[in-house]
Design a binder for these strands. Structure first.
Length: 286
DNA sequence: CGGAGTGTTAGTCG
DNA sequence: CCGACTAACACTCC
């Protein structure tokens, strides 16, 4: 499901309702989704207070008073849904057709919070996970992860450096690689490559310095406007304010096979690159 | 009904 | 180390 803009949106929505709240209880019906033993979660998660809510790459991070950080990865179909007693609110995640209520049959983890509030984790395909890592060890835990593309210090020079050891890969494969750059996924890689005028199959070694500059501008622009739009959603996804992510309407190539290119009117093509469905315009991308 | 495809990534193999 | 490929799983679409 979610790439950087979606996870960022979910994180921002969750922060005000989770910050400084004590975790009163934990219920798990699919232990496989926990990366540490459930007893470990009982000890270091339950009873602790959430002291920070943030994002790194496509992961949501809850800092805890126990000295641990809870890492939540939604992978393809994970959802986080917060419910308060007085003010039901749905936060994050994509719809599960015909399953509007929580908890439902895909709810595998539930946190109990003060005043009867709950945080539900639903995940149809069950690829997502929860993991506790010592907060002091977070840096080394993430040491292989690439830079955050929306940070000021992410520049063309930085991307060029990151791409250096991947000269024989396609530019699409490299951008999907989270150790090269953190947070891009299939939608925003296709959109960024279109915006930069680069064909997804182009070998990294063949990408010129001026093109890396264009690419960095494109990535920042796309991710920023997608975040402002509160992400992309198929179908009837709702964010924390009950609205849909609206980037779907702004996308220029993803999921537009056969439709006219917005720049040159030629039909958008779909192929497979790096094992993923890939959309591009043969005329506008070289 | 069967098979392909789905927003991710860890693991395997060459 | 690098990169291609696949599996993990459940569901939708054709």
């Amino acid at each position: 499901m979610p790439e950087l803009p979606e996870v960022e949106t979910i994180t921002r929505d969750l922060a005000p309702v989770l910050l400084r709240k004590k975790i009163l209880g934990l219920k798990v019906s699919k232990v496989r989704l926990l990366k540490n033993p459930q007893s470990f979660f009982q000890r270091h998660l339950v009873g602790s207070v959430i002291t920070s809510v943030s994002r790194r790459a496509k992961m949501i991070l809850l800092g805890l008073s126990s000295g641990y950080t809870l890492i939540i990865h939604l992978k393809m179909t994970g959802q986080l849904v917060w419910h308060g007693l007085s003010k039901p609110m749905r936060i994050g995640g994509h719809p599960i057709t015909g399953v509007d209520k929580v908890p439902n049959r895909y709810t595998y983890i539930t946190l109990s919070l003060p005043r009867g509030a709950k945080l539900y984790f639903n995940d149809t395909r069950t690829f997502g996970y929860w993991q506790l890592v010592k907060s002091a060890a977070l840096k080394s835990h993430f040491h292989r992860l690439g830079p955050e593309p929306l940070q000021e210090n992410f520049t063309a020079a930085v991307l060029a450096q990151q791409l250096k050891s991947h000269g024989r890969a396609s530019i699409k494969a490299a951008l999907l690689n989270q150790t090269v750059l953190a947070g891009l996924g299939n939608i925003y890689v296709d959109e960024s490559l279109f915006a930069a005028g680069l064909k997804p199959t182009r070998l990294v070694a063949e990408v010129k310095t001026t093109e890396v500059k264009k690419l960095v501008r494109a990535i920042k622009l796309i991710l920023l406007s997608a975040t402002v739009a509160r992400g992309t959603s198929f179908s009837n996804y709702r964010d924390g304010l009950g609205r849909s992510g609206t980037y779907w309407d702004k996308r220029l190539v993803y999921g537009r096979r056969g439709e006219p290119c917005r720049r040159c009117s030629r039909p958008i093509l779909k192929t497979v690159v790096a094992g993923r469905g890939t959309h591009f315009c043969a005329k506008c991308q070289k």
